[in-house]
Design a protein around this nucleic acid. Structure first.
Lengths: 318, 318
DNA sequence: GTGAAAGCGCTAACAG
DNA sequence: CTGTTAGCGCTTTCAC
C-alpha cells in the first residue's frame, strides 16, 4: 500500500538498515549513499510511518499542549506558535482543552502522556502535586505556573502593570482596584500582586474585587453593585473583564478616562472598541518558542525559569 | 518499562491474544475471561500502546482537524466540540491551523493524512481539486465547503440572514449592503448570496462592498470611504467585520439603529458591546458532533450533506 | 560503510 | 472459546 523503507532501499540498491541510517545517522554512511537513498525516497514519495518508528525507537514524534480554554483569545496565538515550532522540529502536536477543570486536566495529561515526547501545560489549573505526577511520566514544561523543579516559561504582565499604574499615578489616580477571579491561579495572582505592589509604591489605596469567573458578564455585574471611586484606576484581569467593566460603568454613565481609568491585559481581542482600551501586550509566540525549545532543545530537562515580559500599551482609558 | 499486554495476559493466566481479544472482541470470549483480563489490566495500570496498535491494525486512533485560523472565535468552540466527540469514541485529535493559506492547508493535510483515521476540514481554503487529492488518501469530512462526493456539514447562516432582512424590511430599510471579503469561500459566498436574495425578495436595492480581508480594521476603513446610505441594512460577514463597521460609522457620528442597521454573524465573541449587535447564532458544537459521526459512525463514507441552520438573534442594531 | 537478523507491542489469521 | 504463530514498518545491535 504505502511506500515503505524497504521499497526505498530496493530502488536505491541498498539494504533496509542502510536506508534507515541515511535518515537517522547520515554521518555514518558514505555521502554518496545517503544521496542515493534520499533520491529514491523522494522519487517514491516515501514518508516514515510514525507508528512503526515510535514503536521501534520507543519515542514519539508528537508533543502535547494542554490549555484551560481554547475560546479565550489569549490561547490561540500561543497554540498556533507552539504548533509552528513543533512542526519545525518534526513534531506534531496534540492540543487539549481542560475547560478550567483541574481533574479533567490531569486526566487529559495522563491520557496523552504515554503518546508524546513532551507535554506543555499552559496556565494549568492542576495543583503542584498533580503536575509532579505528570512530570514524572513525561518531560513537562509549564507556562504561567510555578512548580519547583519543572522548567517554566512565565509570560509576565507585572512590569507592564507597574508601568500602567505609574502612568496613572502621574495623572492623579485616587486608588487602584484589581478585578479578577479570586483563584490561586498564576495569571491571576501575578497580576493582582503586581497591581497591589504598584499601588503601595505610589502611596494610593488598593483593593481587590473578586469575580466568581473572569468573564464579561461577571465583570459587568460586579460594577453595578460595587461603587468604583472617582478617578480610580481599575486593573482588570484581562481585556474581557475590562470590557465588562466598561459596559457596566457605561450603563451608569461613567466613562474613562474622565470618571475612572482602566487597564486590560492580553491584547488579543479580534476587535477594538472606543475608547481604545489601554492594555498589556504579551508575547505568547515568544513564550511558545521558548517552551518548545525547553522541551526539545539543547539544555532540555534543566529546570530553568524563563520570563517573557509584557509591555504596557497605552490606549485612551488611562 | 511500561505495562504490556503480555504482562496482563500473564497475571490473568491467559495468552496475549486472549488478553487482546478481551478488549477488541469481548463477545468472542467467555464473560468470565474478559472480566479476569480486565481486572488484571486495571490492577497493573495497563494502557494500550497506540503505536503498536496502529502498526498492527493499520489504522490510527487519531483524527485530524484543519481550521483556517484558530484565532477567529468561530473556530475554538468547533475545535473543542470535535475534541470531545472524538475522545468519546476513543480517538485523539490533531488540530492544525492553515493560516487561510490553501497550499499550506493541503501540505498540512498530506502531512497528517497517513497518521489519522480521518480528517475534518473546517471552512477549507483548498480548491475542490486539492480536497479530492486528500480525500483519496484518507476519509475526509468537509465543514462549510462543498465538493461533490465528499460528506459535508454546512453550518448555514442563510435562513437566519433572510429572517434578519425580513425584520429589517418591516422596519423600513432602504437597501441591503453585504460587507465581506470577495473570495470564493463558502462561508462568505453563502452569506453574500442569501443577503442578495433576501434583498431582491423584499424589493430593496442590494450591493456588495468588498474587503481585502474580513478583519476589524479593513471593515472600519471601508466605511470611511464608502457612503452607507441612510436606513440601510448592513449584513456583515461576521461579528468582527460588523464591529469594524460600527466603529467606522461611529467615528462619523452614525449610530444604529437610528441611522443605519447592521447584522453580524457567528455569535462567538467573548465580549458584548453597546448597542448589542444583532447577529446570527450558529451551532458549531452540533456541527462538530455530526462531522465526527459522519467520520466514525454507522453510515460513514456516505457522501451525504447535512445542514445545520443558524438562527437570527436580534439585538439592538436592527 | 553496509547487510542480516532480531525485536518494539500489538492484533489477526489459523488451528485446535 | 483459547493458544500458537506470524507480521505490521522501522531501528538497531552485531557481524563482516
Amino acid at each position: 500500500m504505502a511506500v515503505t523503507i524497504a521499497d526505498v532501499a530496493r530502488t536505491a540498491g541498498v539494504s533496509a538498515s542502510t536506508a534507515s541510517r541515511a535518515f537517522n545517522h547520515p554521518h555514518r554512511l558514505r555521502a554518496e549513499t545517503v544521496a542515493r537513498v534520499k533520491a529514491a525516497a523522494e522519487e517514491l514519495g516515501f514518508r516514515h510511518n510514525r507508528h512503526a518508528k515510535a514503536l521501534s525507537t520507543g519515542r514519539s514524534s508528537a508533543l502535547g499542549l494542554i490549555v484551560p480554554d481554547l475560546s479565550n483569545p489569549f490561547f490561540p496565538p500561543l497554540v498556533h506558535a507552539t504548533q509552528l515550532n513543533a512542526e519545525e522540529q518534526g513534531y506534531s502536536l496534540y492540543i487539549l482543552s481542560s475547560e478550567h477543570n483541574a481533574n479533567r486536566e490531569q486526566q487529559l495529561a495522563r491520557l496523552v502522556s504515554h503518546d508524546v515526547a513532551g507535554l506543555i501545560l499552559a496556565s494549568p489549573r492542576m495543583s503542584a502535586a498533580q503536575v509532579r505526577v505528570i512530570a514524572r511520566e513525561v518531560p513537562t514544561i509549564l507556562i504561567n505556573a510555578q512548580v519547583k523543579g519543572i522548567p517554566t516559561v512565565l509570560v509576565s504582565a507585572a512590569g507592564a502593570i507597574a508601568d500602567a499604574v505609574e502612568d496613572g499615578a502621574e495623572k492623579g489616580i485616587s486608588g487602584v482596584s484589581y478585578i479578577g477571579s479570586d483563584e490561586r491561579w498564576w495569571p491571576n495572582t501575578e497580576r493582582e500582586e503586581s497591581a497591589r505592589a504598584a499601588a503601595e509604591r505610589h502611596g494610593v489605596p488598593y483593593r481587590r474585587l473578586s469575580l466568581s469567573e473572569p468573564t464579561y458578564e461577571a465583570a459587568r455585574e460586579v460594577v453595578r453593585s460595587v461603587e468604583i471611586r472617582s478617578h480610580e484606576l481599575v486593573v482588570a484581569f484581562d481585556d474581557i473583564v475590562a470590557h465588562g467593566v466598561l459596559d457596566g460603568m457605561g450603563a451608569r454613565g461613567y466613562r474613562p478616562p474622565r470618571d475612572f481609568r482602566i487597564l486590560g491585559c492580553d491584547d488579543a481581542l479580534p476587535i477594538s472598541t472606543s475608547p481604545a482600551l489601554s492594555t498589556v501586550h504579551l508575547d505568547t509566540r515568544m513564550a511558545a518558542r521558548i517552551a518548545v525549545d525547553l522541551l526539545l532543545g539543547e539544555g532540555a530537562g534543566e529546570p530553568q525559569t524563563v520570563v517573557v515580559s509584557g509591555s504596557y500599551r497605552p490606549g485612551a482609558t488611562i
